[in-house]
């Protein structure tokens, strides 16, 4: 390691100028938010699928800001969901177990579906709780179900 440290390596970051795509995304958000305000379903934009560079991301973060809600979900790695300063616009960041970002999505909705407890998980939880209580009063629980 010490011999490697002696090699002078200075990586120059490629200059990142805004590509102009950030404003296209913002206008798409505007359209979707308009629909949501009219009582129609909003929508979602996959940021990973678009040619956005760091400068573009900075513009998006700057324009959308931070809102009142922030949620962290532990499901196959961390999942961070923030409401932006524009209510109805949510920023999802999916991380791997190693903390790398794998997906970034902007969702336009009143409340992100993934935050709600899922039916399948609820029934799983129900049976788990039943099992826990069943040890003490199994017969009673049986009659409830």
């Amino acid at each position: 390691m010490s011999s490697l440290a002696g090699i002078a390596v200075s990586v120059v970051a490629a200059p990142a100028l805004p590509s102009g795509n950030a404003h296209a995304v913002l206008h798409e958000i505007l359209t979707m938010l308009g629909q949501l305000a009219d009582g129609q379903p909003g929508g979602a934009i996959d940021l990973r699928g678009l040619p956005l560079n760091n400068a573009d991301f900075a513009i998006l973060r700057d324009q959308l800001g931070r809102g009142e809600v922030s949620a962290s979900v532990q499901a196959a790695g961390r999942l961070e969901i923030l409401e932006t300063a524009i209510p109805g616009v949510w920023w999802h960041t999916h991380y791997t177990h190693d903390g790398d970002i794998i997906t970034e999505i902007i969702e336009i909705t009143r409340f992100p579906d993934i935050l709600a407890s899922q039916h399948a998980d609820i029934s799983d939880g129900l049976s788990r709780l039943q099992q826990q209580l069943g040890k003490a009063s199994g017969a009673k629980e049986e009659s409830h179900v």
Binding site: D46, V73, A75, A76, H92, I105, I114, H119, A120
Partner: peptide
């Protein structure tokens, strides 16, 4: 969990 599965599917779609 179903939530983790949904997260997988979101990544897969992406």
């Amino acid at each position: 969990s179903r939530r983790a599965f949904l997260k997988y599917c979101t990544t897969l779609a992406s």
